[in-house]
Design a protein around this nucleic acid. Sequence first.
DNA 1: CGCGGCATCAACCGTTCGGTTGATGCCTGT
DNA 2: ACAGGCATCAACCGAACGGTTGATGCCGCG
Lengths: 218, 218
Amino acid sequence: MTAMSHEAGGRLRILLVDDHPVVRRGLRAMFDEREDMEVVAEAADGQEALATLDAATVDVVLMDLRMGHGMDGVTATRTISERPDAPPVLVLTTYDSDADILAAVEAGATGYMLKDAPPEQLCQAVAAAARGETALAPNVAARLMGRLRSPQPALSAREIEILGLLARGLSNRALSRELFISEATVKTHLVHIYDKLGVDNRTAAISAALERGIIRPR
Amino acid sequence: MTAMSHEAGGRLRILLVDDHPVVRRGLRAMFDEREDMEVVAEAADGQEALATLDAATVDVVLMDLRMGHGMDGVTATRTISERPDAPPVLVLTTYDSDADILAAVEAGATGYMLKDAPPEQLCQAVAAAARGETALAPNVAARLMGRLRSPQPALSAREIEILGLLARGLSNRALSRELFISEATVKTHLVHIYDKLGVDNRTAAISAALERGIIRPR
DNA sequence: CGCGGCATCAACCGTTCGGTTGATGCCTGT
DNA sequence: ACAGGCATCAACCGAACGGTTGATGCCGCG
């Protein structure tokens, strides 16, 4: 009988999803030189990845998060994970912001690795992902641990809403009009935000919020 | 007689500087398969690149700008360009913000390419750089042209530098200390920035600058 | 029920920021 | 040589912001 799974002796079948030809090239070279892995397909964005999954049998998907054009990595990961025959998706990206990591995990990623990882580590992660295990880059793991250990005071929905408008450059007066509240209230919210973020002015608050992925640049 | 230059029939000798092993791998594969180019060395940051230049003969340096640890690409480019026997430095990076481009050009880069470029284009750029010609990615060229055509007032390098610090949340006082200028000067710069961006406060300036790619979120 | 967190508002005050005017020195290009 | 852009600084004033105190009402939780 024909072996549908790699466990029957075949090599691990990998699908690369990354908009950078150079990166795909490097990954392909890395995996194809191994006995136990091979790249069976490449995609430059989410749509292509989905199309590929319909046509080919894949054991692991290596997914970049930010792609210049087309469907981004997070929604692609989510869409893939919702399929009945979903292969594990290992995220491989350059960024390790809270926002990216949390979004990826929430979307169903099996692991999260960074592109500056040594090839060795990367291959281990792919193998782990294929077994259904979770593979996290040390940096990422550390960040998640730190988050659990010292849970930063959570911002309320209202505060995040205000941060979003703040980052668009609104003044306190404009903020108050936008939200139908008084300037006094705006200032109170800001004080709370500064407090929770450990800063002392609005620009630093924006910077901190962007850095921690509480809001994202448009 | 021994041929010191690639023009004597040898292949173009390339030094890769990038902190991502995967990217180096991809580039190496790309160039080494060609008849007329070869990667003679790799470096993971600026220091390594400089050390390598002392030991090997290099025709072109392919330089990433943002490197996780160690000397960053801009200062590495500047340091290399100041050498008497400086090879041309072709910047190859992911980002195309005004800030990055200007910094690289000012540091002496011969060209500026983006990592999502097709391999074909990349090789042409390397060849051009080796001949001492300027090679710019289409996006980058367009951006520079737009600056020259100057539909919108162009920001000076100093103003962009200030914008970058602004976006990190520095106050006028902190800015003045950071840049070794008086607060009065900072305020003057800010007025000019607001003027050119068509805004009227610092947070709006940050927002506008991010949106137009003048600066890049870290 | 009472406690705490959240959202709302007010008044006050000191600091920072925004805007203006004016001035100097340095380049660059005409 | 001169104009014009850039970077630098100063003094000034009104407006916006940051910080505090205190207060009200609403909600969920134990």
